[in-house]
Write a protein that binds this DNA or RNA. Sequence first.
DNA 1: GCGACAG
DNA 2: ATCTTGTCGC
Length: 186
Amino acid sequence: MVGLDVTYEVGSARAVAAAVVVDVATLAVAEVATFAGESRFPYVPGLLAFREVPLLLAAVERLSAPPSLLICDGYGLAHPRRFGLACHLGVLLDLPSYGVAKTAFVGRSTDPAPARGASSALVDEGEVVGSVVRTRTDVKPVFVSAGHRIGLADCVDLTVRLSGRYRIPEPTRQADIVSRSTLRSL
DNA sequence: GCGACAG
DNA sequence: ATCTTGTCGC
């Protein structure tokens, strides 16, 4: 599976997208691919995909082989139009995908139990669109939602298994670190 | 009309 | 997202 993220430069359009392949069993980084380019669309809540998809697609295409699953920094079905960044990428690459966000966007939920692995439903307009998941005991939970070709239960299960000593699951966490350090070195 | 609003 | 050091705690 591959973790995806984009880091932007302060006063310019320059940005770096990173795709980091992580081994599910060991959580070790298996491969890294990056793409430096320009962001040609502003950040607008609900339209994040139009800003990040071009750069992320370029990074994924630089991997030696198509990944088995995409883990995005943001939302999937838990979106005002039920089609967030994770959905866009999944459909365009025809691969399973889902999103892990750090803050609330759409839907309501009750706080999941304090223990790692606990979760509660993310409900919007009367439907379950995602899950609020505790990846670490007594630590702020993350927001998980399916993107394409995968069910919510599997997304939640994977998120917990991919998280060790950090709140953010390893694939996305590594993608953040790589995109950030790559941008600084350019 | 007003506030909220992934990254 | 980004600007940013030290500090409290496991």
